[in-house]
């Protein structure tokens, strides 16, 4: 029996299974096609009436983009990991390249917030391309300084930073995300802190931090701080980062800088569970926890 209520707002007629990147992006030329990866948001969007004009579903599972591996040319200082866009959360969390490594601790924390039913199907590429501020994983990938490899008809394979992507995700609507790349370096660590009503539910507010300590002085050498579920798209806190860079990561310094953060983010938007004022109140607290956790992890290395 067909779900007639669903079919009134979602009635695709075919499933396309391209076998090359070129074929996949060709399907995006028409406005009635949609790429599906892990399908975790497909029916939610459909039931809200947002896929009424979709007639073709594009299944990208045959493109060979489910993998996690180290890049072949590595320096002793920096180790780059390549993750295919079709790789599931489960495949990432069970990888020996991620497990037990402080630089990816935040990544694992974010992935494990989802229940197993989501981890088993949701993909890293799908969570980025959804381009929403309230998904956990993109916040950490943003903090890790991830580079995204897209394929488009015009440019073929090309790399962009996740910072550029989140400035205007709509620009990449006709491109196919094929790989995510992130690097780790000695003395670095990451963390992820989420405030939510239910752990596997959407965040009320969240923060992610990646910190690299200087090998000799133990000052903060490099830092990336990202907030999610507070503004329309995930946002970096450049000013707070700048204030903390080359400082000793004492709790006093961190607390003082975090207290300033609420005044530095001007476009916080309310949600059904939290007002703008409430989000402003919790931002410094979540941020301090993310930074101190990352510093502790980097110090232990």
């Amino acid at each position: 029996m067909r779900d007639l209520e669903l079919n009134m707002v979602f009635d695709p007629s075919e499933v396309l299974r391209p076998s090359s990147f070129q074929d996949a992006v060709e399907t995006l030329d028409s406005s009635d096609s949609k790429i599906v990866a892990g399908n975790t948001s497909l029916y939610s969007l459909a039931r809200k009436g947002r896929l009424e004009n979709i007639k073709k579903l594009v299944d990208i599972s045959k493109l060979g983009i489910s993998y996690i591996k180290e890049a072949e040319s590595q320096t002793s200082e920096e180790k780059k990991i390549l993750v295919g866009a079709g790789t599931t959360f489960q495949e990432i969390t069970s990888s020996s390249l991620i497990n037990g490594r402080p630089e990816y601790a935040g990544l694992k924390e974010a992935l494990n917030k989802s229940p197993p039913q989501i981890r088993n199907v949701a993909t890293i590429g799908g969570s980025i391309c959804s381009a929403v501020s309230f998904y956990d994983l993109p916040i950490v990938l943003f903090a890790l300084g991830t580079t995204l490899k897209f394929f488009s008809k015009k440019e073929g394979e090309h790399l962009i930073t996740i910072d550029s992507f989140f400035q205007n995700p709509a620009l990449y609507g006709k491109s196919l995300l094929i790989e995510c790349q992130f690097s780790s370096s000695p003395n670095s660590a990451s963390s992820f802190v989420k405030l939510c009503r239910r752990m596997s539910g959407y965040a009320v507010a969240m923060t992610a931090a990646r910190i690299k300590l200087d090998r000799t002085s133990r000052e903060i050498d490099d830092i990336r701080l990202v907030i999610g579920a507070m503004t329309k798209t995930p946002q970096r806190l450049n000013q707070v980062e700048e204030e903390l860079r080359h400082k000793e990561p004492s709790i006093e310094t961190i607390t003082r800088m975090c207290e300033k953060s609420a005044d530095l983010v001007h476009d916080i938007i309310p949600s059904v569970h939290a007002s703008t004022a409430y989000k402003k109140r919790v931002l410094p607290i979540l941020l301090r926890e993310a930074i101190t956790t990352a510093v502790e992890r980097a110090t232990e290395r």
Partner: peptide
């Protein structure tokens, strides 16, 4: 492995 059948297209 557990999945939500309400989110899984049958063709998949």
């Amino acid at each position: 492995r557990p999945v939500y059948s309400c989110l899984m297209p049958t063709w998949k």
